[in-house]
Amino acid sequence: MNASPTFMDRAGALFHRYANPGRFLKLGAALQPWLTWPAIVLTLCGLGWGLFFSPADWQQGDSVRIMYVHVPCAWLASSGYAALAVCAVLSLVWRHPLADLAAVEIGPVGACVTATCLATGSLWGKPMWGTWWVWDARLTSVLVLFFLYLGHIALIRAFDDPQRGYRAAAILALAGAVDLPIIKFSVQWWNTLHQPDSITLTGAPTMSHAMLWPLLVSTLGFTLGFAAIVVARLRAGVMEHRIRSLLTSPRRGTSVNATLAESGAQELAV
């Protein structure tokens, strides 16, 4: 256990150096345009390419174009939850305040993306498979992921003491991360109606390059868009945190109490 504490110290110092909430406001403001504009451009290019210029599939015809929105959403649904799990570790081990605020903001965005993944998958399944929904391992495990997101959103806001909510939600996020490999490998471990992955790390993609490129562009665009929205929400979240602490801090002597602070908040909110 000689090496561990120094690693822990260094890792902790690194997080606090580069990711404390105050520093994050500066970093986030600088980063925002570099996320937002490429996200808009790449998403529009990818979707336009997919919708109008990429070829139709030999057996699915034009329905294959749903892939260009469905696959990026599916990728982000899993990645968003992985990000929640990373925040959970940072929160549980290092008690990092920014990780808690990030978890609050990632949850709803991830849930929206997962819902879109399920809905677009349904819209794809009806004309191709002949059904809106089946209870196969892939579809069911993604539905479970959606409920995990909903549970996380509810749990992190459920307590009067936010710290308790952060702790409980972090535990849920870590436990739920077990679902991620299940989603990934469900199409290999069990026979499912959902087809296996076309793009793998080990083999050539079983997809024409004329479809692969627009898919990669729109996936990159969606990913940057997800990051841009999360960064914007997190900046707002940090500011709200600061506003709350300014309003409740008894700086002007002990006479300033919570009621005064609250009336101030109402004035500002109007």
């Binding site: 979707l47 034009d62 174009r65 749903i66 929105v69 469905h70 959403c73 819209l123 794809w124």
Partner: peptide, 9 residues
């Protein structure tokens, strides 16, 4: 179906 998926996204 295609328009609904793109519209939703």
């Amino acid at each position: 179906y295609i328009l609904a998926a793109y519209g939703l996204a």
